[in-house]
Design a protein around this nucleic acid. Structure first.
Lengths: 346, 346
DNA sequence: CTGTTAGCGCATTCAC
DNA sequence: GTGAATGCGCTAACAG
C-alpha cells in the first residue's frame, strides 16, 4: 500500500494537521518539527493522492480562454474544442469559459485579461497579440498570482507561464522545404499570404519560410508579403491582383487564416500552383481533397485545449508539468493522411 | 453544487445503499424502488464523481502490455514510454507491467495472453500477430471479462475491444504519394523493404503504397518486396544486393523496422535515393538530419501508451471512450519539423 | 505552535 | 429488500 498522511504522522510523531501544514507549506510549524516531518516524507517515499486532496478541498477551477472573435475558422474550431472539453469539465473540477475580443486588438485583449483577473479566475489562456498593453496585463495577472498561458501565438518575454502551440519558425521552414521539393525544378516566383505582422506567429512563420527558401539549391523569387488581415474579402482581392500581375506564379504559402479568400481567388483563375496553407478546417480539408491545396500544416486544437487545461490546473496547484506530453506537434497533412472528418471541425 | 448520492437518496426517499445499488446495477432492489431512484437520478442530472468513487473503492488496475522482444527500436521506445507512464501510474490507480515475447510468434503471444488472464489483470494491450492462436487467446480473455486492446498492429475480427494505432493503409498511401512527389519526373524503379507479412500493419502499408504508386501520373516499376524480418543483418544483405543489382534505383520505402540495415547499406553505397521510412527513432532521426532519409512516417508511442491506459481503464469500468481524443495520427516528419529529441527516444 | 474532529462523494460491510 | 455505519486519503475548521 502507498504511504498516507497517517503513516507519516505516525513516523514523525505528530498529528495529521501538522503533516498537512508542512505538506502545503502553511505557516505555524516550528522548523524542527517541520524537518522531522519532511524526513518522514522522504523516508516513506510519500506522494500525495491528488484526487483525494481535491475531493477534500472540493475546489473548482474557473479557467478562462480569450480568443479573437470573427470568422477565423481555426479560432472557431478552437472554441468548439473548448466547449467540448467543457463537457468533461466536471471530472476535472474545472469550469471553462470563453471570452472573445476583436482580432489584433491589444487594448481589448488587455482589458479582457484584466477582467478575468478581477473575477478571480484560477487561470487564463489567451491568444497573444504582441504589444506593450498585453505585456502589462499579463504582468498584473502574475502579480495577482493567476497563471497565464499563451495559446497559438506566443509572447515570450512577458511573464506567461507557458506557451501552448507549435514552433512557428520551424513551421515556416517546413512549409519552405515542402514547397521547394514539390516545385522541384519548375520555375516561377512564390508569394506569401499572411494575416498581420502584429501577431508573432505570422512573423515567425514568414521568417522560417524565407530562410528555408533561401537555403534551397534552386534560387527562387519571393514576392512581397500580402497582408490580408485574415479577412476573406481583402485576402481575395490581394490574391486576385497578384495572380493577374504575376502570370508565371509557381506557389503560394498561406501562413494565416486567409484561406477562404485565397481559395476563391484560385478557383476563379483555375491555375495549377503549389499551395501550402495552415490549419485543417473544412475549407482546407476540402481543398486538399480536391487537389487545390498540396499540403496543410496544422496544430491540433483539441490537443492544445486539453494541454492548456492540464497546465493551468497544474500551475494553479503549484505542480510541475510533463513537458513531453504537452509539446504540440506540427502536423503535416496531405491528401492521403487526412484524419476522418470530425463532426464539428471548423 | 453538483448533485450527490445524498441528494438522490433524499429525492427518492431511500437510503444511500439503495442508491448505490442501482447506480452500479447490483441485485437486491425491487423494480419499483429502482425506477424511483432512476427517476431521481435523471431529474437531478446526477453524474458520478469518478475520483471519489475510486477513492472509496481504493481499487487499483493491473494492466499488462505484451510487446515483441528483440532490438526493434520502435518497440523498445514503446517500452520506454510504458515505463515512463508507470511513474505517474499512482495518480491513475494503475499498475503497469510489460511482457515481451519473440517477434512474429503467435504461440508465444497466445501464451502470454493466457498468462495475463490467469493472473487476473484488469486489462491487456498487445501488439497483435495475425494467427488463429492469437484469435483464440483473445477470445478467452473476453470470456474472462478482461478488456483487450491491440497496439500498433491490429487484429480486427478478433474480439479486441479497441485498436490503438494508425491507419496503416493510409500510411502506405501517404508514403507512396510523398515518394511520387519527391521523385517528380526522375526515372528509375522503387523497392519496398518490409519486415514480415505475418503482421497486418506491414501488409496494409504495402497495399496502400502500391495503390498510391499505381495512381501516379508517372508510371514506375515497383520491385518485388524484400522481407527483412525486421532483422538488421538480413535487411542489410537484402538491400545491398538490391542496390548492386539495380543501379538506377530511385527510391526505397522501408515500411518495417529494418532501418538500421537499410541505412548501413545506403551509407556504404553512398547513393542518393528518395528514402521514406517508418517510426522516428534515434537512427531515423539522424538519417533525416543528415539527408539520408527524406521523410519519416511516425506514430507517437507516448500517445499510444497513454491512450491504451485510458481505454483499458474505461473499459474495465464499463465507461465510454472519447474516440476523437484516442485517434492516433499519422505524423509526417521531414528534417524541418522534427520535434526536439527526447532523452529516451529509441 | 500543535492536535481533534468533521467532512468531501462514494462504496461496502453488516444488521434489520 | 433495505438501511445505518464506517472508511478511502486528504483538508479545514476549531480548540487547546
Amino acid at each position: 500500500m502507498r504511504p498516507t498522511v497517517h503513516d507519516i504522522a505516525a513516523k514523525a510523531g505528530v498529528s495529521l494537521a501538522t503533516v498537512d501544514r508542512v505538506l502545503n507549506d502553511r505557516p505555524g510549524v516550528r522548523s524542527v518539527t517541520k524537518a522531522r516531518v519532511e524526513a518522514a516524507i522522504v523516508a516513506l517515499g510519500y506522494v500525495r493522492d491528488v484526487a483525494a486532496a481535491n475531493l477534500a478541498k472540493s475546489r473548482i477551477y474557473p479557467l478562462v480562454f480569450i480568443l479573437p472573435e470573427g470568422d477565423n475558422p481555426f479560432m472557431r474550431g478552437l472554441e468548439a474544442e473548448i466547449r467540448r472539453a467543457g463537457l468533461h469539465s466536471a471530472a476535472e473540477r474545472t469550469r471553462l469559459s470563453v471570452v472573445t475580443v476583436p482580432a489584433f486588438d491589444p487594448a481589448a485583449l488587455a482589458a479582457a485579461i484584466d477582467a478575468a483577473v478581477a473575477e478571480g479566475v484560477a487561470g487564463i489562456a489567451a491568444v497573444a497579440v504582441d504589444a506593450p498593453e498585453v505585456f502589462a496585463a499579463i504582468g498584473r495577472a502574475q502579480e495577482a498570482d493567476i497563471p497565464v498561458v499563451t495559446l497559438v501565438s506566443d509572447l515570450s518575454g512577458s511573464g506567461r507561464d507557458h506557451f501552448i502551440g507549435v514552433d512557428n519558425i520551424a513551421a515556416g521552414r517546413t512549409a519552405g522545404s515542402l514547397m521547394g521539393r514539390f516545385l522541384g525544378s519548375r520555375p516561377g516566383p512564390v508569394v506569401v499570404l499572411a494575416g498581420s505582422m502584429r501577431v508573432r506567429d505570422h512573423g515567425e512563420r514568414l521568417e522560417g519560410f524565407l530562410s528555408a527558401m533561401a537555403a534551397m539549391s534552386v534560387a527562387r523569387t519571393i514576392l512581397p508579403v500580402l497582408e490580408g488581415q485574415d479577412d476573406p474579402d481583402l485576402s481575395f482581392r490581394l490574391m486576385s491582383d497578384c495572380l493577374a500581375a504575376v502570370p508565371d506564379l509557381a506557389g503560394v504559402y498561406s501562413l494565416g487564416a486567409g484561406n477562404r479568400g485565397l481559395l476563391k481567388a484560385l478557383a476563379k483563375r483555375g491555375v495549377d500552383l503549389c499551395v501550402i496553407a495552415h490549419e485543417l478546417t473544412t475549407e482546407t480539408r476540402g481543398a486538399l481533397e480536391s487537389g487545390l491545396i498540396d499540403a496543410v500544416l496544422n496544430q491540433d486544437a483539441g490537443h492544445e485545449v486539453r494541454s492548456a487545461i492540464r497546465i493551468l490546473r497544474a500551475k494553479a496547484d503549484g505542480l510541475s508539468v510533463n513537458a513531453a506530453q504537452e509539446r504540440i506537434r506540427l502536423d503535416i497533412f496531405i491528401k492521403d493522411n487526412l484524419p476522418p472528418a470530425s463532426p464539428d471541425e471548423e
